[in-house]
Design a protein around this nucleic acid. Structure first.
Lengths: 123, 123
DNA sequence: ATATGTGCAAACTCTTTGCATGGAG
DNA sequence: CTCCATGCAAAGAGTTTGCACATAT
């Protein structure tokens, strides 16, 4: 199926290019409406799904509220979740030897580290 | 508010005492109905919330599907999620200095490490 | 006896889907 | 001119809440 280059899809892509952290569909909607006011939530969901299938976005599975998405091209990093404002922040370091805690017999091919606490604005 | 010791609450507590891994509300319902067939899902949600507030249970935030719960008294550990059978396993080690990767200005009060891969049975 | 706990169903929230219209190619 | 994409509204899935009745204390 051929993909069309619509105003909405362009706006949604731009939102992710401008984002410094993983975004929820709701956040994508708000930001995208700055560019295309008529943008609907269903369109955000549909496009985020398509962009993820295309490998342009990746799902960030943070427990707090729902799935978040970010550019697939970003280098390896982890996340900090603020329990006060519920925002997710990137952490650009990775603890050494994280994957070595797996017991023998388990083959590890990826890992996620999530820190919880208060961000600078909420602390 | 004083807490009563009902059949339902006792059954739910027993489910967690018998569990070897974090459980979803749905799993608690199924297991609890073995003891109290009339048990309702709303009661599970209410009690799981109360037991968490009391500090008897802790929320386990595995991205897969929804929140899971386990005994708070279990020693600190992390989780391995098998991408083949979707089962979660406990890892009884914790990588050193995980929380030190947080940037300045962030106050960390908890962390979670999730490894993904294949468990011994699926490898 | 009294007030909390329960079960049911309705309300809510988040996400997906059906359908008629809009707009890219 | 064709069809895919969009917006709306309704439908689903998961969780919470209101209410009348049950029951622990």
């Amino acid at each position: 199926m051929k993909k069309r280059d619509t105003r909405q899809r362009r706006a949604i892509r731009q939102v992710f290019l401008d984002a410094a952290r993983p975004l929820t569909p709701e956040e994508v909607l708000e930001r995208g409406q700055g560019e295309v006011p008529s943008l609907g939530l269903a369109t955000v969901y549909r496009n985020v799904k398509i962009l993820t299938e295309e490998g342009w976005l990746t799902e960030v599975a943070l427990p707090q509220d729902g799935m978040r998405y970010e550019l697939a091209s970003r280098p390896h990093h982890h996340h900090f979740v603020c329990r006060t404002c519920d925002q997710a922040f990137d952490i650009h370091q990775c603890p050494p030897s994280v994957e070595e805690i797996a017991p023998a017999g388990f083959r590890v091919d990826d890992h996620e580290v999530i820190l919880y606490g208060s961000c600078p604005a909420c602390a």
